[in-house]
Amino acid sequence: MVSPQVSGPAMTPDPDAPLLPEGEAEAVGGAKSPLRRCIASGVVGEKDGMIRFVVGPDGTIVPDVEETLPGRGLWLTADPALVEKAVAKGLFAKAARRSVRTPADLGAQVSGLLRRRCLDLVGLARRGGQAVAGFEKVAAALRAKAIGTRSGIGLRLEASDGAADGRSKLDALSPGIPVVDIFDRGELGMALGRDDAVHAVVGAGPLVQRLQREADRLRALSKGR
């Protein structure tokens, strides 16, 4: 998704200025705006590519990957270098304007939460009849462009440790369909109610949009690792 243009200092922040201007609301540009400011870079971007954090009741920084926890959110771009920078340089305390406790393994916590959320969404798709697994079932769904009576394929899942030949055959049947390949066959199998799973598809719809977003954020946080 292309972010709206943000004029002025928001796109080229002064490195000597406060990363979160005093009094700035959590949403940049209005209560319903999708824009947020990253506390590590100072750059404004769409929240779809960012992670929300809040200060917990005991003063600990808590990842809020579902964006439901109360309190003013502190946002970071989904980039491991920026998460490390925020932890190392005490940027959460600076942004919150109070003393906070920042877990040293915060990046690992976020990745773990996103990973679990992705797999939970895969499981939800299976229970709702919106996902199938196994080479033959996936191939049939791709040819029919449907899963059962549900039309449209929204996403393919390929195990990171699966064989290349089966994947290449499915590639030929699914041009233009996004592929998520950041989970191994054991993880996919558990989410899909099987011992293991190498190939799966999820039907088009709102659920697959949520899954794609979480997978994109997880992939971004895993880059270079």
Rank of each mutant, 00 (worst) to 15 (best):
A95V: 01
G189L: 04
L114V: 01
D16V: 08
P63Y: 02
A140I: 04
R52K: 13
Q5I: 15
P21L: 10
E22P: 09
A96H: 04
L82D: 00
V2S: 15
Q109Y: 07
K169D: 09
A164S: 12
F183I: 05
T68A: 15
L157A: 08
L91M: 12
P175E: 00
D120A: 15
E66K: 14
D79N: 14
F53Q: 02
P178S: 06
T12E: 12
D16L: 14
E66T: 14
E158Q: 12
V83F: 14
D181T: 11
M11H: 13
D105R: 08
L35M: 11
R52G: 10
G112L: 06
A10D: 15
R143S: 13
P175D: 03
T68I: 13
G186Y: 05
R115I: 05
A81F: 10
D181P: 07
S33G: 11
T60I: 05
Q109K: 12
V6P: 10
K169S: 12
D216C: 09
G189K: 06
R167N: 09
L207Q: 00
T68Y: 05
V179C: 09
L19I: 10
Q212T: 13
P9E: 08
R117H: 13
A191R: 00
V179Y: 00
L119P: 05
I147M: 05
R225G: 15
P15L: 01
A197L: 03
R52H: 09
E158T: 12
A131S: 14
L91I: 01
